[in-house]
Design a protein around this nucleic acid. Structure first.
Lengths: 385, 385
DNA sequence: GACTCTAGTCAGGAGTGTTGCCTAGAAAGC
DNA sequence: GCTTTCTAGGCAACACTCCTGACTAGAGTC
């Protein structure tokens, strides 16, 4: 990438960016503390603080230092810098959160939707929770990040119905619903991808750059993380594994999703997996359970083999309502050990609202980026003195 | 990423970088032309040119402008900025090229190796061509980029032998062989990945960001390009598809490579595909050929289905000695149209030395990056005046 | 009450990049 | 052959940014 043209303005905006970044990390700092943190000299920091305060990005908190030495004034980011909207859309309900620059969740709204839900109902609930979570907030929504329990078209952000995969949320365009409420981009991705991002964020920094997240729930999905980023593919449909050929009962090559049909573990009249039935079968005693587990493990390991061969992950994380069942996990882990190329398998470590956690993380990053770039793009406020 | 600390030194190095970049794009320029190109003012460019000339990175070419107006002096990059070594290692021989900053191939050496080659022979040939191509060159080798016809360990750069995949080049560490000849990093990757990079470079800029390159030759491989980069996976083994389950003869789930064993299209005593036999079978008239083609297409399309499902490519490029055979390509293309998710299939567009082309491209990028960063890291030459 | 410590400011200076003007010197036009 | 036109390069003045070092204000500490 060609770097920016050298100019004095560039230098100044870089200084401002450093100052803002320091105040994102730490809620309140004196000018001297900012200087010490950033390595920028005190007079320069003072100048930058004056600029940013004039532009409305910083404010004097009114507090004063109380150590020995001269009293200093604390500065913090302005209150009205804006919020990020984080939204989770699942077939049984929607969640919305408003997050501020510091990563604090300042509002949270939930709304259940009876199943099966009509897309219009979901859209209505979506709008409602979004509005409520932003109402009375300290600033406007600068962007929205949406997790949805269906495949998402990367270009348009619409939920898409793939043949032979369950369509849980239904025909819905989160972008259209949320755009009126948000003064910025609306990013949509599917829940498995967000869960994978949460898993990465939870790991040691840089420690989990290339892995796969296998989701086994009502739907079958997977996220591929390569070189630190979820790779969505051209249309956003990377990881839609329902149709990958695997080893079915009696060694035949069948699509992954077909295995569940043959095992009678799909909900009648649907391509969704009947999770209660599956868990019941797995938890039963005796030969029936062993047979089901063996069949599932065979099928899963076939897909796992393709996944490992094509993406060479450092680790395969398994999540989803039934994927983390101990018996299933054990069988998959054992089976993966017999694959020609093995990758360690473990259960997801983020257990509570994994996809929302991932979306929240991204929303925070994006919100900070928006604020930092806005600051550097800001025209020079007429120098008040 | 946190941007660099603002400082005047940063500004200066940015200016130098712009000047160098201009002279990389265009071999010779006057100071006024550089100023016009970069948008930097004339005095600043003059200053930068003085600095860089003093540091030995630029030189006065001696030529003068001959248009109307005052004569100007042309400057160009110094001759001894260094070269990049580009190496291709195939089982039947090795190639080495020396490339300069402008992308010009200043030397090229080839050496055949009798098959089957002993790894020591290959290493010897490798050292020989590398030395010859650098001998008498205008500068030292700053880095090497190596393409090898075997899987490459991403961490160590060694060629690795995967079970049930042919090991064409054999136990060899290009890094160890080349490090003594090169004053910088030695990057090694497998030939299919390089071919994919060449394919991307040959396409319209930004037009081919997410695709797959399916290689069908003696070995079976594939490269996954996502968001503009080849994704090698954690160990560098992404795309080693020999063991992916697919549909074999009689609808059974078998590993991709097994299909060729069952069709008697492997070289005896080896896991390599017997390409002449395969082409002969495909080119034969009548039912036998149809049967083989259908079986191959079935197997390939099974793998293709997994590839498309997991990576969602915009396009699948097919290369390799027999993958581009019209009948095979046609059958694969037809079969891919019947997949639940389809991706267009076409033959590779870079036909001559595709992997070397990709490696060359990368070598050039890296060489330029090395020179630019060296310049910005350069200590201030004592101001000659 | 003197001393110590710290936040913030001020003045001076070094180092950028820029604008505008000038000069040298060659081609083009008359 | 002379003048005009045009361009590369240089010079000076200026604007701006950051830095160092000294200084001040004001609160704790001994």
């Amino acid at each position: 990438m060609t770097p920016a043209k050298p100019s004095l303005e560039l230098l100044r905006s870089l200084t401002d960016e450093h100052v803002l970044r320091a105040l994102i990390d730490e809620r309140r700092l004196t000018r001297a503390e900012i200087a010490a943190r950033t390595g920028i000299s005190k007079p320069t920091v003072g100048e930058s603080v004056r600029r940013l305060t004039g532009a409305g990005l910083l404010r004097d908190t009114g507090e004063r230092t109380t150590g020995r030495g001269r009293i200093g004034t604390y500065y913090s980011l302005a209150d009205d810098l804006g919020l990020a909207l984080v939204v989770g859309i699942a077939p049984d309900g929607v969640v919305a959160e408003a997050v501020d620059v510091h990563g604090e969740v300042v509002a949270r709204e939930v709304e259940e939707v009876g199943r099966p839900a009509h897309p219009d109902q979901v859209a209505g609930a979506l709008r409602a929770v979004a509005e409520r979570s932003l109402a009375g907030g300290p600033g406007p929504a600068r962007l929205a990040v949406v997790s949805a329990a269906d495949p998402v078209d990367r270009g348009t952000g619409r939920l898409v119905h793939l043949p032979d995969a369950p369509f849980l949320v239904g025909e819905l365009s989160p972008v259209e619903v949320l755009a009126p409420l948000v003064a910025g981009p609306v990013v949509v991705d599917n829940d498995v991808n967000w869960a994978a991002r949460a898993e990465r964020a939870a790991a040691a920094p840089g420690g989990l750059d290339t892995f796969a997240y296998l989701y086994l729930g009502e739907g079958l999905g997977c996220a591929v993380v390569a070189d630190g980023e979820v790779r969505r593919g051209h249309g956003g449909l990377a990881g839609e594994i329902a149709h990958v050929l695997t080893r079915g009962p009696r060694g035949r090559a069948v699509a992954f999703t077909e295995v569940f049909a043959e095992l009678q573990l799909r909900r009648p009249g649907s391509t969704a997996i009947d999770v209660p039935a599956l868990l019941h079968a797995v938890d039963a005693d005796g030969r029936r359970a062993d047979g089901v587990i063996a069949a599932l493990a065979d099928a899963i390991c076939g897909v796992l083999g393709a996944l490992v061969a094509l993406t060479d992950p450092q680790l395969v994380v398994v999540g989803g309502t039934w994927g983390t069942h101990p018996a299933v996990l054990q069988a998959v882990s054992d089976g993966s050990g017999r694959l020609p190329r093995r990758a360690p398998v473990r259960a997801a470590s983020v257990a509570t609202e994994p996809s929302l956690a991932g979306a929240r993380h991204q929303a925070l990053d994006d919100l900070r980026a928006v604020i930092l770039t806005q600051a550097s793009a800001h025209p020079v406020a007429d120098p008040v003195r």
